[in-house]
Computed example of a mutant assay.
Amino acid sequence: MSSVPVAERNQDATIYVGGLDERVNETILWELFVQAGPVVNVHQPKDRVTINHQGYGFVEFLTEEDADYAIKIMNMIKLYGKPIRVNKASAHQKNLDVGANLFIGNLDPEVDEKLLYDTFSAFGVILQTPKIMRDPDSGNSKGYAFINFANFDGSDTALEAMNGQYLCNRPITVSYAFKKESKGERHGSAAERLLAAQNPLSHSDKPHTLDIYKKSYKPA
C-alpha cells in the first residue's frame, strides 16, 4: 500500500475522502473502497509533529469510472459514526486553492521536488507537489520553485521560518508569489485572506504546526 507522489497519480481516477475519524487508517480505507472497484493506491497525509493523519485521505482507482462510482455510493456514509465526504481529488484541490502560494528562490541545483516537499510540509498541508521551474531541454533547475499551501497559516509560518535559511548550502528566499495575469500583485492580500477564512475546506485540513523553530534548519 505504498504512497504514490501526487504528480504520478491518475488524478481523474483519484478521490478525496474527508471527515475521517482518527481511528481510520489506510487499511480500513482500502477495504472500504475496494468494494466500489479495484484500488491502486491509498494515501493519508500525516502530520509531521504528531504523526497522526489529518482527517482526510486519497484513494486512487484503476479507472475514472470506478472513482465516479465510489463517489456515488460512498459519499456521506458513516465511518466510526462520522459521515465522510467523498469527491474528486482534483476538485478538492481546486476548492482548497485559497492563494497561499509561495515563491522559493535562489535554489541550489541539487534541490529537488522531494526535498522541498519534505522541508515545507512541516509547516502545513501542501496541495500539490512543489513545482521547480526547469529548463525544457536539459531538465536542469532554473533555481526557483512554487509551493501551494492549503491555508495561510501554513504559508505564513513557512515564510517566517525558512526565508534566508540554508538549503543544500545556499540561503533561499521565500516570498508570496505574484498572481498570474496581474500587474505586480502578490498572493497573500487581505482580500484573499478574507475569502480563505470563509472557506470551510481550508479549516478542515488545518494541520498542527510547530511553534518553535531552530535558526539553523537542516532537513533530515
Rank of each mutant, 00 (worst) to 15 (best):
K72P: 08
H53W: 04
I73G: 03
I71H: 04
A100G: 08
M74Y: 09
F61M: 09
E65T: 09
F61I: 12
K94Y: 07
L79T: 07
L62W: 10
H53I: 04
K88I: 00
I71V: 11
H92Y: 14
M76G: 04
R85H: 05
S90D: 13
V98S: 04
A100D: 09
G81Y: 02
Y56R: 02
Y69V: 04
Y69A: 11
I73E: 10
N95S: 11
H53L: 07
A67M: 12
T63G: 05
D97E: 10
A89L: 14
E64S: 12
V59T: 02
N87Q: 14
S90P: 02
L62M: 14
V98F: 01
F58I: 03
E65D: 13
T63K: 09
E65R: 11
N87R: 15
N75W: 05
A70P: 00
L102Q: 03
L79Y: 03
H53R: 06
I51Q: 12
K94P: 03
L96V: 05
N75V: 01
Q54N: 14
K82W: 05
K82D: 06
V49R: 09
Y80A: 06
G55L: 01
D66E: 07
H92C: 09
I84H: 01
A89R: 09
G99A: 06
K78G: 06
I73Y: 01
N87P: 02
A70K: 01
K94A: 15
A70M: 05
L102W: 02
D66I: 02
P83W: 03
L79S: 03
D68L: 13
A70L: 06
V49Q: 12
S90G: 05
G57S: 07
M76Q: 13
A89I: 01
R48K: 15
K72I: 03
N87G: 02
G55W: 07
A70N: 03
L96F: 00
L96K: 08
H92V: 09
R48L: 14
K94C: 14
L102D: 03
T63E: 07
V86L: 01
D68Y: 02
N87D: 13
Q54P: 08
E64Q: 10
H53M: 08
K78F: 13
